[in-house]
């Protein structure tokens, strides 16, 4: 037992590899900011090169998945805590804004912040007792919470539509005009995902981020250095829950429908998997995780019943041969390239 917590709270390849290169002090613009800006400008061009609506819709789901995976990566990778209720926070965001829109015709611009608040509030309730403990307790508490929320989505038929799903959710609108076009929806999620990525980058470069890295390395060590471990973990957990709520709100108004399965236990587990496949605790990891989560199921669809098997198999292979995920693999590759192949 003694070494469990120690190992559980440490990213796979050591916390020194976590996060962007830590040269400059907090604040100000850095190379990562520049890279992020460049990537976002490139992503802005996506609808123009996409060719057809289906590809644009994949782009929309990519941005939504990116918000989910990047926020989960922040609590998992930088706090060393596994959360298995990201699906539930995603769902709370979606059902809050979706139900308000379907039943009371509330605008998404009001509904989504409310959904984020509901997700954040529930994270406080779960986090207050669970984050005081180390080890698998957050995993268990969040797993139980996800189960409870899933039952509520299914059984509060009057509010959520139950297993048949929530119908009649309105689309985004701007100055009274509904944004039905996929391109305009893409711009909405593009802005949201960009802001989330920027917020996370600033968070991990701030004083909070340094405290987080310290506690991911050794919680007791960080505690001894005067880092209020519990408070930092709670703040980050609540922030990431709010981000998942944002993703839920975007999803429900884009899809104009929500059904409980989207937010179940399986989703929560898959999001954890995508964080790991992308590169656990690496800032750019979620970009790859979201890409895999969005595109690979589409590519495997033609295999029919073999789809799931191939997915599981490739996941095992990536974890076996690239334990740092895609981002970790690329980092190692770049390192070897820089050394001129001498190693």
């Amino acid at each position: 037992m003694a070494n469990m917590d120690d190992v559980m709270t440490r990213p796979a390849t050591g916390a020194t590899a976590a996060g962007p290169r830590r040269k400059p002090a907090a604040g100000g613009l850095t190379r990562d900011h520049a890279t992020l800006g460049a990537v976002w400008i490139l992503l802005a061009a996506f609808p123009f090169v996409a060719g057809n609506e289906f590809v644009v819709s994949l782009g929309i789901m990519f941005c939504i998945n990116l918000i989910l995976i990047a926020s989960l990566n922040t609590i998992m990778g930088f706090c060393g805590q596994i959360s298995l209720s990201h699906g539930a926070f995603y769902g709370l965001g979606a059902y809050t804004s979706g139900t308000l829109s379907a039943k009371l015709a509330v605008e998404p611009w009001i509904g989504i912040p409310l959904g984020m608040a509901v997700a954040a509030l529930s994270a406080v309730v779960i986090g207050l007792p669970a984050l005081r403990l180390r080890g698998h307790y957050l995993a268990m508490a969040t797993l139980g919470f996800n189960a409870i929320v899933f039952v509520l989505f299914n059984e509060l038929v009057g509010l959520t539509g139950g297993p048949n799903g929530l119908l009649g959710v309105g689309p985004f609108s701007l100055a009274g005009n509904a944004l039905f076009a996929l391109e305009s929806m893409y711009w909405v999620v593009w802005v949201a995902a960009g802001l989330v990525m920027l917020a996370i980058l600033n968070l991990i470069r701030s004083r909070v981020g340094r405290a987080l890295r310290a506690l991911a390395t050794s919680e007791i060590g960080a505690d001894a250095l005067g880092v209020n471990v519990f408070r930092y973990k709670l703040v980050v957990f609540v922030l990431t829950a709010a981000m998942a709520g944002l993703a839920g709100g975007l999803y429900v108004h884009y899809n104009q429908f929500a059904s409980p399965e989207t937010f179940g236990f399986f989703t929560s587990v898959m999001l954890v998997v995508m964080v790991a496949l992308g590169g656990w605790g690496r800032y750019w990891g979620p970009l790859f995780g979201a890409l895999i989560f969005t595109v690979v199921p589409e590519l495997l669809r033609s295999f029919g019943d073999l789809e799931l098997f191939l997915f599981g198999l490739s996941m095992i292979l990536v974890m076996l041969f690239m334990p740092g995920g895609v981002a970790g693999g690329l980092e190692a590759l770049a390192g070897r390239f820089k050394r001129g192949g001498r190693s």
């Binding site: 469990m4 790991a276 789809e307 599981g312």
Partner: peptide, 20 residues
């Protein structure tokens, strides 16, 4: 280099493979 988290994650892949 087995770590508990890596084994946990691989077991998710194993679960998917076993089920399918």
């Amino acid at each position: 280099k087995p770590t508990p988290l890596l084994i946990t994650l691989i077991s998710i892949g194993l679960a998917i493979c076993t089920k399918s």
